[in-house]
């Protein structure tokens, strides 16, 4: 079995989901004939036909609402947004409708949809193509926000997201789309939603992160290891609902926590993790909780994006600072 990239794993999961359930349909801009701007839907039109893979007119708010309507009729739509920066018109549909439909009809109408979008910087893309707005979606009741960090995780989490009976915003770290390959058996096994994954065990320090920043965070953990610091790395994977237990259990062991995300610091999702630690982990902490995040600036154009995105150096500096607390 050849190793595949993250974007190929997304494609594999879509094909698997469509083969096993004919209620699954895929639509968005350029997803059919063109196979998607990142080729995530490549080959699906040929295999499943024009009734199940549809190019929509260019209107993100429209096809988010289209997904709500067709999902309420029992389909399992998976809508692709080309870039997260173009997803904001869909926020109205997610917040006012997708997240509420089951609740406001007391379960009569439901919304089993998946909205997929590549997010984050690092690929030298034009303005509006590098945003990380995950905390906007994590604030919305009634939905799930899922962020894979590897090809295997993308395959398993996307399958589970499509099979889930409720709306899921599925954010794909496009910087990792083709960054590395991994063996991903096409066995149809979903990865569990609503829980964090411990990627690396450690006893001295907990590094909490998700999506694209998992790579830099694992690099930092390796560097710390060489310095004699055993860092535990947690991949949050499902931001909402947040599996606080896994994070608290880790911090109970390590007493130190650094939260790493690419999105801007203020009201970023790291603030929620830090607040949970303040609520229920305060007496386990031996040091302040630190957040390593994007600056509270506009996402810069590509020439400056490396200065915006947290790198291993900033994670290491924060971790070393915490190790000075006995």
């Amino acid at each position: 079995m050849p190793d595949i990239t993250l974007v190929e794993a997304v494609n594999l999961a879509l094909a698997r989901a469509m083969a096993e359930d004919d209620r699954v349909i895929v639509f968005g801009e350029d997803v059919a004939v063109d196979g998607g701007v990142f080729r995530a839907t490549d080959g699906l039109l040929a295999r499943f036909g024009p009734d199940r893979v549809l190019d929509t007119p260019l209107s993100e708010g429209l096809f988010a609402g289209l997904a709500v309507g067709v999902a309420a009729q029992g389909f399992r739509p998976v809508a692709e947004f080309q870039f997260m920066g173009f997803m904001l018109p869909a926020l109205d549909q997610v917040m006012n409708h997708a997240g509420r439909l089951r609740n406001r009809t007391r379960g009569r109408l439901t919304c089993p949809l998946v909205l997929r979008a590549p997010y984050g910087g690092g690929i030298h893309a034009p303005e509006h193509h590098s945003e990380s707005f995950e905390s906007l979606f994590a604030h919305v009741p009634g939905i799930r926000v899922v962020v894979p960090s590897s090809p295997a995780r993308a395959y398993g989490l996307l399958l589970s997201a499509i099979r889930d009976p409720d709306p899921v915003v599925f954010l794909e770290p496009k910087r990792l789309y083709r960054a590395r390959r991994q063996e991903v058996p096409d066995d149809g096994a979903g990865a569990p939603l609503d829980r964090c994954f411990v990627l690396r065990p450690g006893t001295d320090l907990t590094l909490v992160t998700w999506g694209a920043m998992v790579a830099e965070t694992l690099d930092a953990a390796q560097a710390l290891d060489r310095e004699g610091v055993a860092a535990e790395v947690i991949d949050v994977a499902t931001l909402k609902p947040l599996d606080t237990d896994t994070i608290l259990a880790s911090v109970a062991k390590t007493g130190r926590c650094v939260i790493v995300h690419e999105a801007a610091l203020t009201a970023g999702f790291g603030a929620e993790v830090a607040a949970r630690l303040a609520d229920d982990g305060l007496f386990d902490l031996r040091a302040p909780v630190r957040r390593v995040a994007g600056w509270d600036t506009v996402m810069p154009y590509p020439r400056q994006e490396r200065r915006y995105m947290p790198g291993t150096d900033r994670i290491l500096a924060a971790a070393r600072g915490l190790m000075e607390y006995a």
Partner: peptide, 27 residues
């Protein structure tokens, strides 16, 4: 009418839902 949508308050935001329902019928 079990499949009818409830009242929609945000003006016009239900029009895409109707398109989705109609798409389901067509498919």
């Amino acid at each position: 009418p079990r499949q009818d949508f409830p009242v929609c308050i945000p003006v016009g935001s239900h029009a895409p839902h109707a398109a989705g329902v109609a798409l389901a019928f067509k498919l």
